[in-house]
Design a protein around this nucleic acid. Structure first.
Lengths: 142, 142
DNA sequence: TATTTGTTGCAAATAATTCGCATAATGTGT
DNA sequence: ACACATTATGCGAATTATTTGCAACAAATA
């Protein structure tokens, strides 16, 4: 979806106050290249072979990149996390309840809904991001 | 939130085509009694002591109750699943990015948003349920 | 009640994720 | 370019969450 040059990624990391390391760039780049949210398994598989990055390093970087707000962590009840680039505070996914098909939908704003929800809240005054998983059966599983 | 008598729960299970067992009733009842989505740890802690239910039994029942559509499984990036009664296909939660505070918001319909999303989809024609996690800092963590 | 089929407990296995520690690399100030 | 303080990395081991195999048991149905 979002394509970033190495220079862009360096800037992103610096702005986030994170050190720039080859591994971190490789991980970010790998996440940014795929269309659908990627699993840790896929990252480990790709990056351990290609760049010789240890599993622990990948987990640690996913955590710091997530905390820094550069990536988003998603869960589709598949037993493992998925990650995607954080672009725009919003993430809407259609998820098949039967197989592991997911489809990311972009371009839908729900700011007014968020406002309504905040109005009802007693514990929160503002929000940063949100993600919505919409479950159903995909065409193959209907 | 939703209160069910034992008889109600029996009906729910039968309608779902599940066998009625004391353990299953206890698990469902336990989930229905709490306001916020409950963790497996909490269920195990409560039910193992009170009713002498094994951990594996709890996991197996959570799975079958979920598949049967009686309960919903949620993830807030806390490293473990949460469960709540399935009531009405919708679940909206405010989640603190810092601590483990969550707040369930009810009474917001987003049917029109779902319609828009479905219109954009290539892989899905209909949906069953959805859940939205809205992240931010709770009052204590601001 | 007999039969069939789903359920449970227990212990052990997997899967996902995290941690400890020694070593190496990054960013900063000189 | 250099030295220092801080953070990142690899490796193996530890945790945590969740699942499974199997024998004993209980629920639904005729």
């Amino acid at each position: 979806m979002a394509f970033y040059s190495k220079e862009d990624l360096v800037v992103l990391l610096k702005e986030a106050g994170l050190r720039v390391t080859d591994h971190r760039l490789a991980i970010l780049s790998s996440i940014s290249r795929v269309r659908q949210p990627v699993t840790v398994y896929e990252l480990v598989d790709t990056l351990r072979k290609k760049e010789n990055i240890d599993q622990a390093t990948i987990y640690r970087n996913l955590s710091s990149l997530h905390i820094a707000g550069l990536i988003r962590r998603l869960d589709f009840n598949h037993g493992h996390a998925h990650y995607e680039l954080e672009t725009g505070r919003v993430s809407h996914q259609l998820v098949c309840s039967n197989c592991e098909t997911i489809e990311k939908i972009e371009g839908i704003s729900i700011d007014d809904v968020i406002k309504k929800i905040l109005k009802k809240s007693k514990k929160f005054k503002q929000t940063t991001t949100h993600s919505m998983e919409i479950y159903g059966l995909c065409k193959n599983c209907v």
